[in-house]
């Protein structure tokens, strides 16, 4: 690891002031620190945001569930409020990495990082999430741009993620046996007027599978997915799963998700 200045900040203003082209915010550190140790990344300044009080916590209303950026995966997984409002989201958080990762990693860090195989980005797309940042509100459809790329500007800090409570929803993940990230993850959320199907692990970034969405819109049942054709063109292909296998899994998991919707 190369040397850096360490700052532990108490509020968002301070964090923003210290941010520069060569700095990084540090939340759980589960992505940032391994990258620094492997010398894949180095920064002049590390700005620790964990001690900013109002960045952590869970708030529920009848329509939405708002999770502070530095709320840990383990907190979301164990939260009674989350389980009650959107149980699939608690289940998702419980399936991230291992206990060590869940006890440090944060929702803000996860979506800021936008790993193509991460779980939370699928939740954001499926659950019409609004990303509250230090500067603005960003709708999920405009937030996840590409591989490890988001709409965040340099020094812009995520403060909270606000999910829209669905009628029912389910997330099914087929984990990579080695890393336990998603080879494919499918998040199905049903609202009064729409059905959202978000897919992670398959392309350079999370996306919504419009074909399955429209099939489910007219008939919200697993069998509605049987007739959908998923082309594997442009899908990720690696030693764990070819693009064709990923295409196959999207349908299998989407069916399981529909069947599992609560």
């Amino acid at each position: 690891m190369k040397g850096f200045n360490f700052h532990s900040v108490k509020n968002v203003k301070e964090a923003k002031k210290l941010a520069s082209g060569k700095s990084a915010f540090l939340a759980g550190g589960m992505t940032t620190i391994p990258a620094m140790k492997l010398r894949l990344a180095s920064y002049s300044d590390i700005i620790d945001i964990k001690n900013i009080k109002d960045l952590s916590g869970i708030k529920v209303s009848s329509k939405s569930l708002k999770i502070g950026a530095t709320t840990k995966h383990a907190e979301v997984a164990a939260s009674k409020e989350v389980k009650k409002a959107i149980s699939s989201l608690a289940h998702l958080a419980d399936g991230i990495g291992d206990p060590q990762v869940r006890n440090r990693g944060t929702i803000g860090g996860s979506i800021a990082n936008n790993d193509p195989a991460a779980d939370y980005p699928a939740a954001c797309l499926a659950l019409n999430a609004i990303i509250h940042t230090s500067d603005r509100k960003i709708v999920s459809d405009k937030f996840f741009k590409g591989m490890f790329e988001t709409a965040l500007k340099k020094g812009e800090l995520i403060q909270a993620v606000e999910f829209q409570v669905p009628d029912k929803s389910c997330y099914v993940k087929f984990p990579n046996p080695a890393s336990r990230y998603a080879i494919v993850g499918v998040y199905v959320a049903k609202y009064k007027k729409e059905v959202n199907v978000a897919v992670t692990g398959v392309e350079s970034a999370v996306f919504r599978c419009k074909k399955i969405e429209s099939a489910l819109k007219s008939n919200f049942s697993s069998s509605a997915i049987d007739g959908v054709k998923i082309s594997s063109s442009g899908f990720n292909s690696d030693i764990h799963a070819s693009s064709d296998y990923r295409a196959h899994l999207i349908k299998v998991l989407a069916k399981k998700a529909v069947a599992g919707c609560k």
């Binding site: 046996p177 080695a178 890393s179 990230y181 030693i239 764990h240």
Partner: peptide, 23 residues
């Protein structure tokens, strides 16, 4: 069921971390 050391055609070890080598 899980483990496999995989080299690509040029001789690079693809399974060079626990992200890819399935322990």
């Amino acid at each position: 069921l899980y483990e496999n050391a995989h080299y690509d055609e040029s001789g690079q070890l693809i399974t060079a971390s626990y992200m890819d080598y399935t322990m």
